[in-house]
Design a binder for these strands. Structure first.
Lengths: 111, 111
DNA sequence: TTTAGTACCTTGCACAACATAGTACTATAA
DNA sequence: TTATAGTACTATGTTGTGCAAGGTACTAAA
C-alpha cells in the first residue's frame, strides 16, 4: 500500500524550527500554548517533539525563558526570542522562500 | 556560532521525494541527469542521497526503470513513473501546497 | 487523601540524508 | 596492451530529527 502520510511527515520536518521561532517572535509563550498555535495552522506537533526542540534552541542561544507561576497547575516556562534568535529567524525565512521557489519551479514544470 | 546551513538542509529533506517524482513525470531520466536538473533549481543533492531514494521509490512501486547502453561509460538506469507513482505524485503536490500555506500563515503573522 | 487536570521532562526507536569508499564499464593515450 | 580518466551505479556507517511512550510534579476539587 502506498501512503503519503509518511512523506507528509517528512515534509513537516525542517519547517518546525522556523514555525516555532516565528510564533515566538510575536511574543513569549509556553510549550502548551505553542502546540495550540501550531494546531490552528494544521501543523500538528506533540510534546515529545517540542520539548527537546525548545531545549536545543535554548542551548544554541536562540531562545531564552523565564518561569511564571500558574494558578491552574505547575509553573510554566515562558520562552522568548533572543537577539540572535531574531537574526536567525530572518535568515530562516529567506531560506524558506528560496525553497518554496525551487520546489514550485520543479513542480510546475510537471504540468 | 549560529548557522542556518543545517536548518536549510533539514528543510530540503522531505521535499526531495516530491521533486524527484515531479522531474520524472516530465519523462524518464537516469540518476546523473536528475541531479543536474535539481541543481538547476538550486536543490543540491548528492549521489549518496539519490541512489538509495530511487531504490526506495522503486521498491514501493512508484518508479520503474529500464537499462540503456551508453556510448560514454557504463549502462544507465532510466527511471520512470508508474501509474501508482503518478497518483502518488498528485497527492504529494496537494500536501506540499497545504504545508506552504500553513507555514506562510505562521510566518506572516510575524510581521 | 484520592482523582483529574495541567505542565514539563526523558528514553529509545525509526527513518532520511549524507559522507565516504568502492565496483564496473568505456574510451583514449602511452 | 596497459594505464588513466571519465562516467555510472552501489554499499556502509554516522548523524540529526521527530515521535511514541512513559514518567514526575504541581494545583484544585471531590
Amino acid at each position: 500500500m502506498v501512503n503519503s502520510e509518511n512523506a507528509k511527515a517528512q515534509m513537516r520536518k525542517g519547517v518546525l524550527e522556523l514555525c516555532i521561532l516565528s510564533i515566538l517572535s510575536q511574543g513569549e509563550a509556553y510549550p502548551t500554548e505553542i502546540i495550540e498555535k501550531l494546531k490552528e495552522t494544521k501543523l500538528v506537533v506533540v510534546e515529545g517533539t517540542l520539548y527537546p526542540l525548545l531545549t536545543r534552541l535554548k542551548n544554541t542561544g536562540l531562545l531564552s525563558y523565564r518561569w511564571e507561576e500558574s494558578t491552574s497547575g505547575p509553573p510554566r516556562k515562558y520562552y522568548f526570542l533572543t537577539e540572535i534568535g531574531q537574526t536567525y529567524l530572518n535568515e530562516l525565512q529567506v531560506s524558506w522562500l528560496e525553497l518554496v521557489n525551487a520546489v514550485n519551479t520543479t513542480v510546475q514544470n510537471t504540468k
